[in-house]
Design a protein around this nucleic acid. Structure first.
Lengths: 282, 282
DNA sequence: ATTATGTTTGTAATTTTATTTCAATATTAA
DNA sequence: TTAATATTGAAATAAAATTACAAACATAAT
């Protein structure tokens, strides 16, 4: 565990002097690394022994050991700093674009993992595995994500319908019922067509799953199960860059979760698909 | 720069005793952290002053400072270990699936960056920016990636044709000529339809860009510009999980690269698109 | 209020550790 | 071979961490 975290944890049971030391370390985390026990004592207006006792209380062998732990913390923090990337500018070289875009996409994945509720994912996998019919709704970039999900499900003999236009979406939604599942994909969670189709599906008794950005929005309010993506989007205000990667990561998780449940059958299907597709290869 | 890297860099200009110290530190990197200068000297069969001189030679203020640097190195190394993920198994919990899939996707991006040739990317951006017509070819999962590229280009008023079936692909390819660009997406680089369409495009004088996994394959042999994705694919042998994320990252890079070239016009288009799309929102 | 008890804290002594000085030794060039 | 230079470690020194201990403080019981 990180040193700072340890400090926070036992802060309340520290003596006044120790709390003063804790305050200083939490404030000046990095600087402490280059201080001696006596110097630190001077900063905090206390004595070297108190510093050593403090280090011991945190579970370290002594001040020296605590300093090493703080250095490690700082290193990881620096690493974290790499995440603070900037948007691409007109003056960026190709190299910089490659770096920034890849970072942005990586971050989208990491942050999505941190907002994704594991219980909701498990529920989604459960209902999709048991579903009679699966309907997927999405338009624009989210539509492509929906197609991806449909295509993946098809490979494991799990039929799903995916509609990108509003009329077909509503026509299809109206025939859903109990035991069916509707998946609505919309980054904003405010896409009118998707909302209407999902509303219809829900009224008909289908279980509804939303894939939207994190935060309150009409679609997640409506849906039974909510899967969130991180909402970062920095580049050129174009939208649909990092958000799509995040959505696809959720799709992958759902797919693998469903595929895993009946692994043996499924690997047979995949093998067959694979062999047939191979015939078309050079 | 990491301490070990510094050592390697100046290794040849170290004195015999210093090289012995260097050897020991490179071997026992982590352990050194908990040793005093005298203890380390004993291990290496030398004296404390030599240890201190060694640290100074690397640019540190003293042995203490070098130890802090080594601790930081170790922390980062531990972090790196996170990358060694395993494929999902039937027994994995939802939590493990989330973790493993996200890691796999992150890694696909990182590794793609490492195989992607910056010069080829720059060339691709250049020819696509100047192209009269852009034709995109892909089938299956790669077809969805192609659609994504088409959709993105459309948003910046750069018309591109994307065809998912072989007949239309060939019919379209035959009308290409000099100044046109054909983009062929195929993970294996061995998809027959895509190869035929790209061959036709090339014969007609169009510039051809391939997006395939890293390594020799027919499509990259044919194409003028080759963009490679990392070829990792561990999960359930299903294909099209990480590879798709890698392909999309390349698409993002191309898109941003093209969009950047005429930034002002483009942000106007995007703004307009955005406003119109907003009208359809809740 | 006063005393006994235990805790907290800093001073001073001690120990450990790092660093510097310097002379012995090894290496290199003339 | 010899002079100049570089390398190295023993001993001395300086700096740092740690310990021992007693004063100061807080708390509870009388």
């Amino acid at each position: 565990m990180s040193c700072i975290l340890k400090i926070r944890e036992i802060y309340s049971e520290l003596t006044p002097t120790e709390q003063k030391i804790a305050d200083y370390i939490m404030e000046e985390e990095v600087e402490v690394t280059s201080l001696s026990a006596a110097e630190l004592a001077e900063q905090v207006k206390t004595s070297p022994p108190s510093i050593v006792r403090f280090a011991r209380k945190l579970g370290y062998g002594g001040f020296q050991e605590m300093k090493l732990a703080l250095a490690k913390d700082a290193a990881l923090q620096d690493k974290q700093q790499d995440k603070v990337y900037e948007a691409v500018t007109i003056h960026d070289s190709t190299k910089e674009i490659i770096y920034k875009i890849s970072k942005e996409n990586s971050n989208a994945i990491d942050e999505t993992v941190s907002v994704l509720d594991e219980v909701e994912v498990a529920k989604a996998i459960e209902v999709m595995t048991k579903a009679n019919n699966i309907n997927i709704f999405g338009v624009g970039a989210s539509g492509l994500v929906g197609l991806d999900l449909q295509y993946k499900l098809m490979r494991i003999n799990k039929r799903a319908s995916m509609y990108m236009d509003s009329h077909t979406q509503l026509s299809s939604a109206i025939h859903l019922g109990k035991g069916d599942v509707a998946v609505g994909i919309s980054h904003s969670g405010r896409t009118l067509e998707i909302f209407k189709a999902m509303e219809t599906a829900k009224n008909r008794g289908a279980t509804t799953i939303s894939i939207t950005k994190y935060g309150k929005n009409p679609l997640m309010d409506l849906a039974d199960i909510n899967l969130f993506t991180a909402s970062v989007e920095k580049n050129l205000r174009t939208g649909a860059i990092a958000s799509r990667i995040a959505q696809l990561t959720i799709i992958d998780i759902l797919f693998i979760g469903i595929a895993r449940k009946n692994f043996n059958e499924i690997s047979k299907y995949i093998q067959t698909t694979r062999e047939i597709v191979e015939d078309f290869k050079l």
